[in-house]
Simulated assay, not measured.
Amino acid sequence: MKYFFVALLVIVAASCENDTTTGPVGTLSLKLTDAPMHYSQFMSASVTIDKIEIGNSTDVNSMMTIMNTPMTYNLLELVNGITSTMANAEIPVGDYNLMRLYISSTEMKMLNGDSFTYNMNQNGYSGGGMMQNGMMLNNQNRSIDIPLNHPLTISNGSMSEFLLDIDVDQSFMLQGVNYDNNNMMMNMSGFTFMPTMRFVDMATSGIISGTVQDAHGNLPNATVSLMQNGTIYTSTHSNSNGHYALIGIPQGAYTIKTELNGYIMNPIGNEQNMGVLNMMSKATLNVDFNMMTSN
């Protein structure tokens, strides 16, 4: 999972197909980000999203389209707090409890020029993934159904913002990987796509950010993992300046750790990181890591 660098932020403004609505409306914004992969041999890992719908699970006729212009996103650019807006739509006031995401294809490009694609319309999704919050693959519609844990209430003039975080490392399942004598990846024969993602309400979520460093300066490419109940909730890598950011973190209790080849966490200077982090609604936590060489 990799998080780096200055990236082009693609802003996609989308509106409802039902723009003839003359009644009161509110605004819904959907943003995309990435929990990246641990291989450094890729220049891109892209998804093409064709359409997004919202409605109510109890009424099949309630689904309305809020984005229907296919857009391709390089997820490796959407890291360390960088997001891209998938949809920014005015929708009628009311309660909504279901969102549908239509991903048609994915592509991976390696630094050596090799390129691989996986088409969901032709091949379907591979397995059920590890989608959080009850998200499910809808084979009938070839969509990803995202139930909203708490119904989204749109009131006149309101603004709601949600974040979709796709875990590239767990979603792009590499096949036929060959390694060199140093266990570094050289090439592969292809991949399948098994969507692994989380979906959060930004109105109640917080941010954890900080710097990974040793006695000589900041450290890039360190893996920072946020754990909940003993499993990884999300993760990132420190960028070229040693900075990292984890966004869209719901209220709750977490633990956090960082890993980097050749380094261990210094027992001095990491006292704040050894215990439980209590994230409050809309809070911002600063957590720095002090590393030392392991030999």
Rank of each mutant, 00 (worst) to 15 (best):
M279H: 08
S84R: 08
S205R: 01
L30C: 04
G127A: 12
P24T: 09
S115P: 00
V10Y: 10
V287G: 00
G176L: 12
M186Q: 11
V212C: 11
T48I: 10
L163Y: 08
N97K: 14
S104P: 09
A283N: 14
G206L: 05
G129L: 08
D165P: 05
D165I: 12
L30K: 03
S15W: 11
L174E: 00
N18R: 14
N112T: 01
I82E: 01
L78A: 06
E53M: 13
Q175T: 13
L148R: 07
L219K: 07
N156D: 02
N123Q: 14
T258W: 00
S294L: 12
P70W: 02
G217Q: 07
D165R: 08
L111R: 10
S235D: 06
I247T: 15
F172V: 06
M184L: 15
G242D: 02
T196P: 03
L8C: 09
G190S: 14
L163S: 11
V200A: 07
S115E: 14
N18Q: 08
T231W: 04
M86L: 12
A7P: 07
G134D: 05
T236M: 01
L219G: 01
I232C: 00
T234W: 00
Q272K: 13
A89Q: 00
S294I: 14
F172Y: 03
G176K: 13
N266A: 04
M136Q: 11
P70F: 01
F4I: 04
G94A: 09
L9H: 12
L152P: 07
N266S: 15
S240I: 08
N181M: 15
D165E: 15
T284H: 10
A35G: 02
N278V: 15
D214K: 11
A203T: 13
L9N: 14
S15C: 14
D165G: 05
L226K: 01
G157F: 09
M186V: 11
T27E: 14
Y39V: 07
M202T: 14
N181C: 14
D50E: 13
N183Q: 15
F4H: 05
M186A: 07
E259Y: 00
M197G: 01
M131Y: 08
V12Y: 01
F172L: 03
T22C: 08
D169H: 12
